[in-house]
Write a protein that binds this DNA or RNA. Structure first.
Lengths: 225, 225
DNA sequence: AACGGATAAATTGCATACAATAAAATATGC
DNA sequence: GCATATTTTATTGTATGCAATTTATCCGTT
């Protein structure tokens, strides 16, 4: 697909770097992000760092408190549930549109992705499954043929990523997830738009609920300086 | 309601200023935003301006092309339709949740807002109606009791505002809009969540379509430097 | 010894200076 | 005379310096 103008701005690169470290948990929620420290660590001046932090703040990944510095966004259980609620609806919308608009090539790609998930499940490879699961979902977003919706959904997905990581190890996660995927795939391939939407919504909602339970059990996680 | 920590950052203020001028059409889509010029005009240095532009870029209101400066986002008809499609779904979701969760106080406020709209319609006061219409919708967002959803919906609403302005003068816009509002209000007050969602979706979709027609008729508007 | 206030240190926010790149203008060759 | 190459100019991107405010430390008082 058409790759964008490819920015060479340092602040963009810094933003990507920091975002990567946030979503992979290197910088855990609540961690303080010192501008000078980051600048020194990444080998640039404070200016690109500041610009990157502002960008990440707009994306909701960090929180900037005036005169008090930036911290990795530490989203409370309440708000997290709200975000999953919206995520479920966005995914449902992607599914509804995808069922109506998916091309044959996209159908094949989606089926392939599903099969790849199956192999990862059989191999009990959680890391691979996580990655392939993501690809499966992203293909649905793209098949909606609504570029704006795709972007919004991807953005929110990324934003929830640091929290989703926590539920990787839940018992039988892969099997239930895969079974749900099968239902979703079938609904999309048979162009049942409302059924696709419904199944995707349920798929995400259950993730959110699972997650909420997990959060409730773990009192709190790394609020480090 | 709870007002936030109230930032004193200049870049935030600049961002608000520039956003205001964009959504009110003072800075029309496609217009070049010169950092030095803006800085001089707003009485600050380039730094807060740059930070503001980055923020607005994240919000989708301006587009920053590397080394080539920023322009007010000029969204094509295609993408605009996509955005209205998403907007319709977000509003529908707000309506669905609002119907289930609205409090009695919020019911009264919503009814009052509706009545205010009626008065503006009777007075044939388009400007007032536009403002009151916005309030009506915002009350529904808030009544969803999902703060994240509310934020996202408001953000997208704002982003579409410069384009919505164009259809203010469509014949009988107020009357049809008001009639649709009546149906929406009734569905919410009787707690019919799916009906609320459906009517809100239709209400927004029709806006999007009206707008698309309008865009198609006007070949293009102000792409000036 | 604990609490409160004053001073000191550190960090953010803004302004300015400089460097790098793209656009414009001018000159040059055919 | 037009197209192309080169210089000039303007604007963005980055670094640094300074001021303002917050946070930490230290000392005095109760």
């Amino acid at each position: 697909m058409g790759n964008k103008p490819r920015t060479i701005r340092r602040s963009e690169q810094m933003s990507d770097q920091i975002e990567e470290r946030i979503v992979t948990g290197v910088y855990p929620p609540g961690m303080r992000l010192d501008e000078t420290e980051l600048a020194a660590g990444l080998g640039v001046s404070r200016t690109p760092i500041r610009e990157a932090l502002i960008q990440l703040s707009s994306a909701g990944l960090v929180e900037i408190r005036p005169r008090r510095g930036a911290i990795v966004a530490d989203i409370g259980p309440q708000r997290l549930c709200e975000m999953f609620e919206v995520m479920a609806e966005l995914e449902a919308m992607c599914g509804r549109l995808a069922a109506r608009r998916i091309t044959e090539a996209e159908q094949r790609a989606l089926s392939d992705a599903h099969q790849a998930c199956e192999e990862a499940r059989d191999a009990n490879d959680a890391d691979s499954y996580y990655r392939l699961n993501e690809e499966f979902h992203y293909l649905i977003y793209a098949a909606s043929h609504n570029g704006f919706l795709e972007e919004q959904t991807v953005a929110l997905h990324r934003r929830l990523r640091p929290y989703r990581r926590l539920q990787l190890r839940v018992r039988d996660r892969m099997s239930t997830s895969f079974a749900e995927h099968a239902g979703i795939l079938e609904a999309i391939l048979t162009e049942q738009s409302e059924l696709s939407a419904e199944r995707l919504r349920a798929h995400v909602v259950v993730q959110g609920q699972r997650f909420a339970d997990l959060v409730a059990s773990l009192p709190m996680l790394g609020s480090r300086s």
